[in-house]
Design a protein around this nucleic acid. Structure first.
Lengths: 264, 264
DNA sequence: CTAGCAAATTAATCTAAATCAATATTCTGC
DNA sequence: GCAGAATATTGATTTAGATTAATTTGCTAG
């Protein structure tokens, strides 16, 4: 991944675009509506409000900041920025990455609607990675100190946030196993199946979807090179397990893909 | 409840020993004292009690169960057991691992005194891996439902437990980066330096320590084979960066080891 | 529409680490 | 202390995936 892609948006440049694109009048017309309450959000069954009753959701609503949309490449935060909030993806997608000394990026995660970003900063009070929109996306920002305060009032919220963090831990450990012992093909199959079920979770097709990230992003995430990712895609296509068309993916044989990971 | 929770290693070599060693009378004589309160525990500055005041530590004490010691190979819990508690290591060390279909183990983590085990089970209510003592070890068991209840009463505890989980997430993501782009030597150096600072944390020497795990465990954890781990150890020794004597490790050139990871 | 660049594919070669194999060392229980 | 089993080391060979390189496709801005 070229450094240019990462740094293409300076903060300043950002501000102007935002001023233009998201003027009060434009705001209402924007498809990534910023005025949805948690109560009416289509994601409220998977996001933070899950397990909260009406009154509680209302309280949560009060602390959620619905920011203006992010354009492709815009940063949510950067590595070592002071930790202030966690974010829930409302639409679009994001990637987290760290930069090595040599300027090489290493993608540490992808985030789809309903998923929570930024928990890596909780302990150290500084984000451990940078996070960037992969496409035009919208976000709910939840200031963490307020989330903590509210969690203290609402046992359900505390319980649920523990669960969200626990889920992140379990997921990260699965990736540990993936990277420490799976082949390139297994990693790739696992990655596609993972995306598939995450799309299913938000009521999108589990067998046909667009990849919001580049092959390079995928490679960095899976510990492979772009070339290898590309080759594996071609190979899986030749085996008629998937159909690839640039960013468009169709999973033709989900069960066989599952076998690829299960077998070894 | 607790005695049943301890299960002997599947290599049924020690069934009888358990019966003998953990009889009620033997218990009192055990060097890994089970009657230390959190308030008087030498680890209370790094473990859960940190940031709690005296009265609060006392409340925490009430819910902590100090189980009898675990022998090498004893399991704290097994993959897919119902999640009930998190555990704080009081002495000794543990490893977590998952078994692949082929029966191959993959080590997912090592735990030293003052560290918390079991958070991977919080979300799904079932442990995602098995955890086993690497040596004679002792544990504080903290039933999670009670920890949640108490966290709700003590904002400091809630805050701290969020931090502990956040730390786990950040740590897991570092390993993700390690596995996805570091060479065998870099991984090994990073592993040794990690152990070093974890030992320092519990006031043990950061430059001289015993590895509680086998080369094979290290290999599985780092995504390398035993042979490679052994070779790297030998190579680092030849470079006079470390001194290895079976399980005994001395870090001779910590800064140079750091450079190994920093450079690429 | 097209120039210019980013992203993706494909092929040829190389290499770090795996695998295979043999030996040495260290633990464990009798 | 000794036998047998783990554990660890070392060497020879193989290989999966990296690297290098060239080409193609797609995308964006003028």
């Amino acid at each position: 991944m070229s450094p240019a892609a990462v740094t293409s948006d300076s903060t300043e440049e950002n501000e102007e675009n935002i001023a233009i694109q998201h003027s009060p009048s434009a705001r209402k017309l924007c498809p990534h509506n910023t005025n949805i309450s948690c109560a009416s959000c289509r994601l409220n069954e998977l996001c933070l409000p899950i397990a909260l009753n009406k009154a509680e959701v209302h309280q949560l609503d009060e602390i959620v900041e619905r920011n203006r949309p992010y354009k492709k490449g815009d940063h949510l935060y950067r590595q070592s920025d002071e930790f202030k909030s966690v974010y829930a993806v409302r639409s679009g997608s994001f990637k987290s990455y760290v930069l090595s000394d040599t300027g090489q990026g290493r993608v540490t995660g992808f985030f789809l609607p309903g998923e929570i970003i930024g928990m890596d900063g909780i302990a150290s009070k500084h984000y451990a990675n940078s996070t960037q929109a992969l496409e035009h996306s919208s976000i709910c920002e939840i200031p963490f100190s307020q989330l903590e305060k509210l969690s203290h009032q609402l046992p359900n919220l505390q319980h649920h946030f523990f669960a969200i963090m626990g889920n992140e831990i379990a997921k990260d450990q699965q990736i540990h196993t993936l990277l420490s012992s799976y082949t390139a093909e297994e990693r790739t199959a696992s990655f596609l199946l993972g995306l598939s079920s995450r799309y299913a979770r938000v009521s999108l097709s589990p067998s046909r979807f667009l990849l919001p990230m580049t092959r390079s992003d995928i490679g960095e995430y899976l510990g492979l090179t772009v070339e290898t990712v590309s080759r594996i895609f071609t190979a899986l296509q030749r085996k008629r397990l998937i159909e690839v068309n640039n960013r468009e993916i169709e999973l033709l044989e989900i069960d066989t893909l599952r076998e690829i990971i299960g077998v070894n």
